[in-house]
Design a protein around this nucleic acid. Sequence first.
DNA 1: GCACGCTAGTTGTCAGACTAATAGAGCCAA
DNA 2: TTGGCTCTATTAGTCTGACAACTAGCGTGC
Lengths: 257, 257
Amino acid sequence: MTDPSDPDPAPPPAARRNGRDTGRRLRGAIAHRLGVAILSGEYKPGERIPGEVAFAAELDVSRSAFREAIQVLTAKGLVESRPKAGTLVLPRDRWNLLDPDVLGWAFTGAPDIDFIRSLFELRAIVEPGAAALAAARRDRADLKAMRDALADMSRHSLGTEAGRAADRAFHAAILAATRNDALVVLSASIGAAVGWTTQFKQRLRALPRNPIPDHRRVYDAIAAGDGAGASEAMRLLVEQALADTAAAVERVRGEGA
Amino acid sequence: MTDPSDPDPAPPPAARRNGRDTGRRLRGAIAHRLGVAILSGEYKPGERIPGEVAFAAELDVSRSAFREAIQVLTAKGLVESRPKAGTLVLPRDRWNLLDPDVLGWAFTGAPDIDFIRSLFELRAIVEPGAAALAAARRDRADLKAMRDALADMSRHSLGTEAGRAADRAFHAAILAATRNDALVVLSASIGAAVGWTTQFKQRLRALPRNPIPDHRRVYDAIAAGDGAGASEAMRLLVEQALADTAAAVERVRGEGA
DNA sequence: GCACGCTAGTTGTCAGACTAATAGAGCCAA
DNA sequence: TTGGCTCTATTAGTCTGACAACTAGCGTGC
């Protein structure tokens, strides 16, 4: 059931050419590189990116590979190209910030604290609502999936990959119980992004809290069919996660600059 | 302030080649065509798409143009290609259903009633939360934008493009007042999709309700800084919109099959 | 029955030429 | 001066054909 293609933390594929290979295919590497550059503000909205021929030559790749990378960025709303005008970075509100890749790029560089806050606010809005829906629609199989995930969470700490996977599984089970595709997709994106921040917190050894009781309360309310209770319990859970992350970010600021 | 590039209802650009041009660039037309085919179930998850050379020849386009279209679909999570294996349609839960283009493709064919319900549920969760945030953070400029949009709405019916634009402007103003990028992007997507359904309702002359009072209540609560009230007023608004759309869809079913 | 290597088929990348769109300069007229 | 028009240089868009890289699936040998 584990999907080996997604969360690969770059095993040593031995960068194929001159060291410029961030993973996956060549065009993927280029897209990744440009995406990170844009997300980190190296290319600002309105600015022009060097012309195809020049840039492709500079990166030492063919024009077609470079163009395919640009298509990817275009598909995600980051840039737009027109003949004679070149390709320029679109204003931030045209970016598909909820695209999993874009989120990943956003968290590759130094994560913007305001953006993290935005994500948690969104999560604080969506997940309680989802929990309420789940309380109304869950069946026995859904509840079992949640229980299993919960059990895994108590076996492994959030410091381990297994623990984080269990956490994700718990939330995914709730989402699945809503019978709502849009919610599933959205929360999958947010969940992945939040996963980055969890890793982030973990890196700082700033996770003193035991997450089990909070999760347990959510489960109990859903199992009881108590929508309002599930919503409220989930609200508390997300709130505390935000507080923990904010604290971690604060510490980084203190250490860093 | 009007964006001429997005909502173009295909002015007669005189299909350039043999009639196979859904608009925009060549690769865009191909991507659109394939995207609609996938969203409508013509190609099902797990199925293989004909090989590049064969398909490109069949469409009478070069392989590069075809490949760039495939990159777009890949970027949106619809397909995945690997050497020797070909390119195959990914399972539905990997699709970026909230991508504006994907949403557009989904509504090009016969909209799936369950998916519409999902979107409205998501909207019913997100927009009240957004309204509450807006009530806490709005400044004078935000309130003015909402008032202006409201005034435009009462001048033009929702049957006119101007009226729909005003409606969108009202919701956009609320989103902007939340100071939350993720919310803005998400609701822009949903809003566009909901726009399709509004047009849909309109096509059926099924909009007897006067939307102004509902919107007015939302504005008043936000202006008063009443988060709970704004949330509740918005909840009612979305609920009624869903009811109207559901009725319209019902009527289609009755007439259609 | 299982592991390993081979091969053919498919995508990935490259190179160079030509086409099409258009931003912006420059010109002309009111 | 100002406004609009044309014209051109520049840039992305498309095409072609070749070769490289990857790998699914088959075959072979243990």
